[in-house]
Each structure stands twice: as C-alpha cells, then as structure tokens.
Design a protein around this nucleic acid. Sequence first.
DNA 1: TGGGATGGTGATAATGTTTTCACCATGCAC
DNA 2: GTGCATGGTGAAAACATTATCACCATCCCA
Lengths: 212, 212
Amino acid sequence: MHELTPRQAEILAFIREHLATEGRPPTRPELARAFALGSTNGVQKHLLALAAKGAIELIPNAARGIRLLGEMGLPLVGRVAAGSPVLAIENVLGRYPVDPSLFKPRADYLLQVRGLSMRDEGILDGDWLVVHRTTEARSGQLVVARLGNDVTVKRLRLRGSKAELIPANPDFQTLHLDLTRDVLEIEGIGVGVIRNLMAAPAPVAGRRVHRL
Amino acid sequence: MHELTPRQAEILAFIREHLATEGRPPTRPELARAFALGSTNGVQKHLLALAAKGAIELIPNAARGIRLLGEMGLPLVGRVAAGSPVLAIENVLGRYPVDPSLFKPRADYLLQVRGLSMRDEGILDGDWLVVHRTTEARSGQLVVARLGNDVTVKRLRLRGSKAELIPANPDFQTLHLDLTRDVLEIEGIGVGVIRNLMAAPAPVAGRRVHRL
DNA sequence: TGGGATGGTGATAATGTTTTCACCATGCAC
DNA sequence: GTGCATGGTGAAAACATTATCACCATCCCA
C-alpha cells in the first residue's frame, strides 16, 4: 500500500470513527459535511484515491458502499527471525480480532511469548503479549527489546546512563547495559496479556493477507 | 426486551451476519431478497417490530439506517453479590469490546479475578478471566463454581463421585467435595485470560446500559 | 515550464433506498 | 366471532446516494 497523504489519513480515520459510533459507513454527503467541503465530488476523489491505495474498497452503486480493508485484527508475531523487523511478514502467524482500544496505549500487535522468563508476573510460555509499538519506554515498564538479533520481553529499569532488563523468574539473569556504550533498541511496550486456556483460535486471516 | 419470534430472530441474525461480512447493514431490498420476499414492506414491518422490541434502532431516512443494539461487547463481572446470579446487573462493572469468537468455546462474559489462588497458573489479582457459560465441566478444566453464596475460580478434578477444586498456589487449600452429598454448581469454564498491564480501559458502556 | 498528483467547486442524471399507501391471510386469546 | 399480533403482496412517491461531467488552483518534480 502506498503511503496515505495527511488529508487521506484524516478521511480514513473519520470513516473508521463513523463506523464505530454509527454502525455503518458514511455517505459522501456526510463526509463532505464533516470536512466542510461544498461538493461531494471532492470526497469522491479522496475515496477513489484511498481505494487505489488499497485502504478501502468501494462497492459500486451501493449506498454507503465503503469497506475498510486491512482492518482484520492485530497480527500475531511468532518467533522473530534473526535481524528481521518484528512485523516482517515471515514472523506473522496470523491476524486475530483483538480491539486495539481495549488497551492503553493503543495495541499494535501481539507477540507470542516464548519461555518462562516473566513467569512470576503471570506471563507464561505461549501467552500473547499485547504490544504498543514505540521506541521510547520509561523505567518500570515491560518492554519488547531487541538485543542484537534477538527480541526479548523484560521489565526495564533506567538509572542514569545504566539500564537493566529484569526477568521475573529467579532462574534467569538480569541484563545490565551501559547506555553510553551499548545500544538498547526498544520495539514496543507491553500493555496487556491474552491467554487462550483451550485450543488456540483460528486466525481471521492466515499468514498472507491479500488485498482482494 | 420482549422475546423475538423465530422469524424476527432469523432476520436479526441475518443483519448481524451481513454487518460482519459486508461491513455495512443491509437495505430493505437486500433483506427481501435474502428471505425471498416479494415486497420490501414485509421487511419493513419486521424491522419495525425489531425496533419496537429494542433489538435494533432504525435511523429515519438514512440508507442502511439499521443499528444493532445490545451488541457492545462482553460484560465484565466484578465481585459477585451473595446469592445473586453472576450476570445480575449489580455485578456488572461495564462492557468491553472483546470478540467472543477469539476464544473456544465462545466467550460469554469476563470475570474479574480476586486474590492469588491461581497465581501459579499465571492468573493474578485483577485479571479478567474469560468465561464460557455452561453448567457442565470436565475434569481438568478451569471452572467458575458457586459454593454456597460465593463464586470461586479453581481447577476441577473429578474422580468418580468425588470432586476436587484445586487452587494453583500452595498457600490455598484444595476443596474436597462428595457429589453424593454436596452440590457443585458450575457457572462456566475459563477459556482465556486478559490482563491490562497499564491502566484499565474505559468500558464501551457503563454499569447501566440503556437502550436509547 | 510543463505535466501529474492532490484537493477542490458546482451541477446533474441515474440509481438506490426508505416510507407509506391499500389490501390479504393466519393463528390465538377473550 | 371479533380483535390483535404476525407475516405477507404490490405499488408508488419522496428522498438519499452514487457517479460523472466540466472546470479551477496548488504543489512538486523532471
């Protein structure tokens, strides 16, 4: 998908919002009113641009025939391949219908936790860590950090130029970093945990998500 | 809400389905086609009946102006008042946008866990247990059980006529029941866990959910 | 300096959709 | 047996909505 212009992003956000609050997509006149446009044709062109970029689908001759694409839940990231971005396609196991607004700050993806290094905080092997994507974290937060080629989940403590990545399990060791020397790459902060006690559900979309 | 007739329930289900698959409510002609009706007026009367019963809201003069009511996520049940049904209004803290189909079997409500009796299974104080409502449970399942006036979350073990409710924390004691004497009321089985690591989100609907 | 992408106004035809008219049939309670 | 809720047909008016026409302005890049 090409990048959206700021205006297009605004309009896409309004459609999302309208859908959530009203339960149906907006019409072109409704969009025109919302953006103080005098003509529905201005709206129409934005919608065509959004459709061309794959952000929405326009159903011909259907009232409110606007369908959001790529809104199929959050990606579940499995084992992160060495050196690849967390959200790289080869790491994504599927997409699951988790409402991003259920968590604060907003959830961006799910990370399947491996190992028991955070056991004493109730995060077990196989749990889904709900992650907010950010490069900044505060002391005390649960972080998804990149250490070389590995991605790890630990609690962060910052003390001046020193950083600690602290597990919640006495069998694991705290990692000490000197920020004047070492690079600490934050991938996101943990904002929630989801565990399936029974069988894992089927994803709403498989490994590859095609746009039409 | 009055009870729906079978026909009305069918139509409501179709609206739900259409909304999920198409991303917008159906029109009256679309409904007429789906139910092989020759006239949109037949549909209109059903919609008016559904609206009168509080199942939907009809927005006048708006294309696809059908809005589902009472579809606002799962109820979060807090401390269960003595003797009251789990889902009694006084126990419901709010409603949260959790997709029931994310868990198997289907999630029916969320129960705010109190205490640390299941700590070693990674279920902590304040966690939301995702519950499937059922009165039947198998040995080994995590159950929401009613013991007298109290509701408790434990792992169930059945051995012939004996039942055990087993905590996951050595500080708590296993409860032994003789099913020939004692009554074990199952309220549901735990199918998942959700934890908010940051502040708890605002509910999509407050303690009281008004219809219009 | 010219052409394409973006972001508009204004108007109108064609089509989709809601709403209401009149009328009919069945089952069920009082 | 009459009245009422339910579940229909058929038609038509009024309104909502989509789609497309011609035209304009700005910005950026080759």
